[in-house]
């Protein structure tokens, strides 16, 4: 079980608020790791730490054997190009069409010709079910389409690892199921690693190989879907059941 990324004893604060405290987590290569936890628990921060968008106050982060703190800006940029990032609200560039949004990483980071870029973007959009939406602007898309366009942009360079920040939040059950299925399919296509932040337990149970439960800045439970479901930890059980009664303060 090879590890592609590792957070080791990481502490991270925003001002006076400590979000992660001595957190350690391994991301297994080729697997889908889902991170669950309460809102504001620091789940999205983990994704930003993994691709170097944030630097921890202390601790070390390793991605593909490289310690991020020791990388130069140029090396960090190179590393980011091998990691796809799907943002919570997709973060599509609103002045660009769907096609141009997805093509941007190829145009700027590779020497591919126009025809090859066109072929790859078309294929990526087809793989997320957005064939025919190439010329639309992000403002003309529905919530589910925006998320899928974000997926396409995240995977267009065939990254080694894709980070999904709340990919199904705020969507109806059908689109949620579709997106969950898309994440699974993309993982299989790319044969790569995915880290998914989500509150949606149904889709997590459908796609996760491993689940890490975050509470008060640390990982309090880690394991397969069955192991997490069977956990005796009362915090995990309260979270899974969505109960107001238990050790988690409301």
């Amino acid at each position: 079980m090879a590890v592609i990324a590792r957070l080791e004893d990481v502490t991270m604060s925003y001002g006076q608020r400590v979000v992660l405290q001595n957190l350690s987590l391994d991301i297994v290569e080729g697997a889908i790791t889902c991170v669950i936890g309460l809102s504001g628990a620091g789940k999205s921060t983990i994704l930003r730490l993994l691709n170097g968008l944030r630097r921890p106050d202390s601790g070390r982060i390793y991605v593909k054997g490289q310690e991020l703190g020791s990388l130069s800006d140029r090396e960090l940029i190179e590393l980011r190009r091998s990691i796809g990032f799907s943002f919570q609200f997709a973060a599509l560039f609103d002045s660009l069409s769907v096609f141009e949004n997805v093509a941007l990483p190829l145009r700027e980071n590779t020497t591919l010709g126009t025809d090859e870029i066109h072929k790859r973007v078309t294929h990526a959009l087809e793989s997320v079910g957005l064939a025919g939406a190439e010329e639309k602007l992000p403002a003309e898309l529905s919530g589910g389409m925006v998320k899928r366009a974000g997926f396409a942009r995240a995977i267009i360079t065939n990254p080694d690892m894709v980070l999904y920040d709340e990919p199904t939040t705020g969507l109806d059950p059908i689109i949620t199921h579709l997106l969950t299925d898309t994440i699974l399919r993309l993982r299989n296509q790319l044969n790569g690693t995915a880290v998914v932040i989500s509150h949606d337990l149904q889709s997590i149970f459908m796609m996760a190989d491993y689940i890490a439960m975050l509470f008060e800045g640390a990982v309090i439970a880690y394991g397969s879907v069955d192991e997490i479901r069977a956990s005796f930890n009362p915090i995990v059980q309260q979270f899974l059941q969505g109960s107001e009664v238990g050790p988690i303060p409301i």
Binding site: N51, L53, I77, E78, R80, R81, I83, F85, A91, N109
Partner: peptide, 21 residues
């Protein structure tokens, strides 16, 4: 607007410099 809608962060995540872009 690009900052608050995470578009600047998206540029960084794609390995693209917001200054150059």
């Amino acid at each position: 607007s690009m900052v608050v809608t995470e578009q600047i962060e998206a540029l960084d995540a794609l390995g693209l410099s917001p200054v150059r872009m």
